[in-house]
């Protein structure tokens, strides 16, 4: 596979602040890549350098085989960008917006209407963008980013401010886009979103990349205990403690009894034997735990 993005030793400072402090990573073509981190971690600056909006202080940057700085119109035709704020022209309908963006890339209105249909916005074609809901506006702006069939798509917090249902719908759309062969680079501060969508993620904090890899690999690498919950009172607490690893806790909040263990198979078998599996749920570690173990603090301050 060829590389869509190659970054090595990237640095960018604003005065005293090191926004990006030596980031190195690569994105394969066709990959769904996520850049994660809390606000101020350096995600947006990294993205802006990749998009050619800012010049790096030092480091190697290659996007689709060429350097994004200084800005190259030819490169712009091959990348699609969805901005955090829905940057629409005022007082235009959804269809006028996407047809305009299409024309900026020399694409005809038929393809624009097709995209509008793809993101399920045909019904809203004649609605002014000011009147669209948050989810509709996000879908339209993703359609605007895809109208010229770019090889590489940058999505900056595409689901921020959406309700859970709208987020799920958007996830389906993003998966479809990636399935059609577009390389997708996503920044998000929703770790669950990255875990569901991304092939690989880079976790950033204070301008540095702390971890890089598939979400499942990062989580497994923690060797964090699995938490098994059952209905309270199904087994006695003493019994439960005997099942759990000696150094790990058993908690009972009156509703659920939770056993933390590194050998979940053994515990589950034991619970099955006792026929005590009512309300069973098994939770492994998540990217949040990865972040916690990397930085020593909760992801959300």
């Amino acid at each position: 596979m060829t590389l869509a993005i190659a970054v090595a030793g990237l640095h960018k400072s604003y005065g005293e602040v090191h926004a990006v402090d030596g980031a190195t990573f690569e994105v394969q073509q066709g990959e769904f890549f996520g850049i994660l981190g809390p606000n101020g971690a350096g995600k947006t600056t990294t993205l802006e350098i990749l998009e050619g909006l800012r010049e790096a202080d030092s480091g190697e940057v290659s996007v689709l085989g060429s350097s994004p700085w200084p800005r190259k119109p030819e490169l712009m035709k091959r990348i699609g960008v969805q901005l955090q704020a829905s940057s629409f022209f005022e007082r235009l309908t959804a269809r006028e917006q996407i047809r305009l963006f299409a024309s900026l890339y020399g694409i005809g209105p038929a393809r624009a209407d097709e995209l509008l249909d793809l993101v399920g916005m045909t019904e809203k074609a004649h609605t002014r963008t000011e009147k669209l809901s948050g989810g509709q506006a996000q879908r339209l702006s993703i359609a605007c980013a895809l109208v010229h069939d770019p090889d590489l798509v940058f999505l900056d917090e595409p689901t921020s401010g959406l309700d859970p249902q709208a987020r799920r719908n958007l996830w389906d759309l993003l998966r479809d886009i990636n399935g059609q062969g577009h390389t997708v680079v996503l920044t998000t501060h929703h770790l669950d979103e990255a875990e569901i969508l991304c092939d690989r993620v880079a976790i950033m904090d204070h301008g540095k990349i702390l971890a890089l890899g598939p979400p499942a690999t990062l989580v497994r690498g923690l060797e964090a205990p699995t938490r098994i919950s059952i209905e309270s009172g199904s087994v006695s607490e003493v019994d439960a403690q005997a099942l759990a690893d000696p150094d790990l806790e058993v908690t009972d909040d009156g509703i659920s009894l939770t056993i933390a263990t590194r050998t979940p198979a053994k515990v589950l078998a034991a619970l099955a034997e006792r026929n005590a599996m009512r309300g069973l749920s098994v939770r492994g570690a998540t990217l949040e735990d990865v972040f916690l173990s990397l930085t020593g603090r909760e992801f959300r301050e």
Binding site: E51, G52, L53, R71, P73, E74, M76, K77, I79, V81, L83, Q84, A85, S87, F88, F89, E90, F101, L104, Y105
Partner: peptide, 18 residues
Amino acid sequence: VTWRQKKILRRLRLSPVP
């Protein structure tokens, strides 16, 4: 001002429009 504030200028900069 509105194009800058609504990030339309930025969006145009990310398109091949000179």
